[in-house]
Design a protein around this nucleic acid. Structure first.
Lengths: 139, 139
DNA sequence: CCGTGAAGCTTGTAATTTGCAAGCAAAGTA
DNA sequence: TACTTTGCTTGCAAATTACAAGCTTCACGG
């Protein structure tokens, strides 16, 4: 997936060109569902991504406007932009899908139930919390 | 992404291990939203995937139970399994996301509106049609 | 301030994977 | 029976990844 021109205007293809690799979505997941916000936080996630891959993915995600970096050097922190945050519904559906089909899923049962029964509420909660986090970064 | 052991039990990671590359989701898209059902159909999709990559992805998708092949050789056809079809909600959300954020999206405006206003109905239609297609393959 | 150490990357390199071109067998077709 | 698709497999150069090492900036203790 190193291309300069878009392969097509298909919306699924657009999504793939934004985060169609084995790692980008993990960064988005971290920013969306965990407290991980720094470079080393991401590195320390269970999946163990390589440092050069993380650096390149963070650059690409920023370039595509999904993620924003505030601060530099030691104190740098990352956050989802509104565009990144808009992936929340898709992420919840992916979680629901894996929760249903992966026998060994680590997704908390209670969370899966809440996605199913109270999708709108769950979305509103995350959206509110994360957009607030983004706003704070604007100051 | 050539691994033998799972990186984690995270549901997002599970999804990535199933189709976390630049091509698999295009095959799923073809089976879900287009009439493409054969090897050469997939090859002829606009994005132009390489034949060896297509072969390896079809094998993996079958191995993971997302896609089923009926017939052999010249007459072979592919279809989504129930597990593959269950990706429909996630796919619709991805389409909605790209429709919102890609200035040049090829997603038909009417379809985007229908996803937004009548999500349940759209899902029911696809689900019914595609599961019927799957059943027919059972005979 | 000066040394130390951790955070945040960059660089080098070997191993994998990809993209592209050929090749090939089986099933239609003429 | 020869010809042509279809559905792949194989070979290889080029790109990407994984892994390890190194560099630089900044915070903190003394």
């Amino acid at each position: 997936m190193k291309r300069t021109v878009r392969r097509s205007d298909c919306p699924i293809n657009y999504a793939l060109e934004m985060f169609g690799d084995g790692w980008s979505l993990l960064v988005i997941r971290d920013l969306m569902f965990t407290e991980r916000r720094t470079y080393s936080d991401f590195l320390n996630a269970e999946e163990g991504m390589a440092t050069n891959i993380l650096a390149s993915r963070l650059k690409k995600l920023q370039g595509d406007g999904l993620v924003r970096k505030t601060g530099t050097g030691r104190g740098a922190r990352y956050a989802l932009t509104p565009k990144g945050l808009d992936l929340l519904p898709a992420m919840l559906e992916l979680i629901a899908w894996s929760g249903k089909h992966d026998r060994f899923t680590g997704a908390p049962k209670g969370f899966l139930t809440r996605i199913q029964k109270d999708r709108g509420r769950v979305m509103a909660e995350f959206r509110s919390r994360l957009s607030q986090e983004y706003e704070i970064g604007n100051r």
